[in-house]
Write a protein that binds this DNA or RNA. Structure first.
Length: 489
RNA sequence: CGGGACGUAGCGCAGCCCGGUAGCGCACCUGAAUGGGGUUCAGGGGGUCGCGGGUUCAAAUCCCGCCGUCCCGACCA
């Protein structure tokens, strides 16, 4: 039976561990405003690399960046019924300006659909004006009850893409395409495997026709919704009269999509790859890929060892790597700190590769390379150090994804699970469980009540088993949806 | 918003029960030695004890109120 395997999970107090890695890794800090976060340079360095890569991928798929205002007239939110219902409880509202009470309150954007489609309505006359493919990087505010650094803060930084199309099929294609971009980024760059799929009616975005999502598994076996892509249908174009004249001459409402990822991804990175030594950063996202620690015993060695370290750095910078861009190398030649202390510090920061360079190495034209992910050490010749380092970084990137995927598979259960066993698993380690659902919200609600597990997505093929579940996990009735059940952040 | 814990130096904490000159570890600064996995010694700087009120000759300590943080519920990218 698939569910007889041994499930594993990280230490019980995962929250404390997470906070420790984030705070001691100096990724973020609490701000004076409750529930808001300050991203410190180390965290922002990772985010900048994420942002740059995502931006590149958006541009490669034909999108442009723009900027829309932070303040939105309250009435805009009310134009789409489901949308306002979904967001009303968590809005921050500006009621005064210039010392006077405003005639109409302004909400601080919780997301920008309304203001953006109001503008698109002005810009679009003809089918020739479509599609509009725009992205914006912005901070948004949602007044959450409970907050957590990176995962759920009152204010957060994200990217939101908003597009308008002439047909439903084109919008659907865009929605799926951007979900794929997210998956490629999360797996290829963050080394974080995700399950993609469609959200159920009750879990979809407020105002969407369909919502697709990327769900990663964290080390406590809970799911993290890492990115979403929505097919909004004509809901917003009807609310904001976003209409165009077709080639045939008729007037039709446009079809919209929106999709976003946020700084939550940094939290996902920590919870996917962190270990008890601190952060582990995939090489492609590491602000520094290689740190060179020069080691000297006698004072007379110091000068030549430091000089050698900088020469090695130069030779690494000169190395032509396979992916675009130079190797990112730092020499830690600080005085007064012993090498061991430096090792701990760089391990905490998650730098993927460390090079130890001492007098003995230099005399034998060698250096020691140490992998952050596995701790493995190897001696390499200084004449081929660039190639060795580049190969190792490539290997680390690959093996971090493989390891994370293996961990997820180890903690996934497909098929043949009884509800009793399901309850037992969810009360214990937790898992990704692929099982059927009869489609009745009462069953889903009962499962949530009893186990805290919800349907994360109806997964795409990659995650499904050969044999689809035939019965509902809870009631045993005929299954109409093959669902991924898990506890979630 | 309900239940619990907590708030004292940059970080982690003791002191509170039983009121009486604000302490410890790490970090930081100076000097010297040290340096292949968290150096050692000596000297030094830093705190309106979360905020406000009350009791008292005297409050970090007792009482009341507020604010904030964390954990557990409801909400959520």
């Amino acid at each position: 039976m698939a569910d007889d395997k041994k499930l594993t999970t990280r230490a019980a107090d995962f929250s404390a561990w997470y906070n420790e890695v984030v705070l001691k890794g100096e990724l973020a800090d609490y701000s004076p405003v409750r529930g808001c976060m300050v991203i410190r340079p180390r965290g922002y360095g990772i985010w900048e690399r994420m942002q740059h890569q995502l931006d590149t991928m958006f541009k490669d798929t034909g999108h442009e960046n723009a900027y829309f205002p932070m303040l939105i007239p309250e009435s805009f939110l009310h134009k789409e019924a489901e949308h306002v219902e979904g967001f009303a409880p968590e809005l921050a509202v500006v009621t005064h300006g210039g010392g006077k009470k405003l005639e109409e309150p302004l909400v601080i954007r919780p997301t920008s659909e309304t203001i953006i489609y109001a503008m698109y309505a002005k810009w679009v006359q003809s089918y020739r004006d479509l599609p509009i493919l725009i992205n914006q990087w912005a901070n948004v505010v949602r007044w959450e009850m409970r907050t957590r650094l990176f995962l759920r803060t009152l204010e957060f930084l994200w990217q939101e893409g908003h597009t308008a199309h002439a047909t439903h099929d084109e919008a659907e294609e865009e929605t799926r395409k951007m979900l794929g971009v997210y998956r490629d980024f999360m797996e290829g760059w963050m080394a974080m495997p995700v399950v993609t799929g469609i959200k159920t009616e009750s879990e979809k975005f407020a105002g969407a026709l369909r919502t697709y999502s990327c769900e990663g598994m964290m080390q406590d076996n809970k799911a993290l919704q890492a990115g979403t892509s929505h097919n909004l249908g004509q809901n917003f174009s009807k609310a904001f009269e976003l209409k165009f004249q077709t080639e045939a001459g008729g007037i039709e409402h446009a079809w919209n999509t929106s999709w976003g990822v946020s700084t939550r991804l940094i939290g996902g990175l920590v919870m996917t790859h962190g270990d008890d030594k601190g952060l582990r950063t995939p090489p492609l996202l590491a602000p520094i890929e290689i740190v060179i620690v020069p080691i000297w015993r006698a004072e007379e060695d110091k000068g030549r060892v430091k000089a050698a370290a900088h020469m090695v750095k130069e030779s690494l910078l000169a190395w032509e790597r396979r992916v675009p861009g130079r190797l990112r190398v730092h020499v830690d030649d600080r005085d007064g700190i012993k090498p061991g202390a430096k090792y701990y510090e760089w391990e905490l920061r998650g730098i993927p590769l460390r090079m130890e360079l001492g007098p003995r190495d230099i005399d034998s034209n060698q250096a020691v390379l140490v992998r952050r992910d596995t701790g493995e050490k190897r001696s390499v010749s200084l004449s081929s150090v660039g190639e060795e380092a580049a190969d190792l970084l490539h290997l680390i990137q690959e093996s971090m994804l493989i390891d994370a995927r293996e961990r997820r598979e180890q903690n996934s259960i497909r098929g043949g699970i009884t509800y009793d066993r399901f309850r037992e698993v969810m009360a214990g380690t937790g898992a990704f469980v692929y099982a059927g659902w009869c489609g009745d919200e009462k069953c889903a609600a009962a499962i949530k009540e009893e186990t805290k597990a919800t349907i994360r997505v109806l997964p795409d093929e990659e995650f499904r088993s050969a044999e689809p579940p035939k019965t509902c996990l809870k009631c045993g009735g005929a299954s109409i949806a093959e669902a991924l059940w898990a506890k979630a952040y």
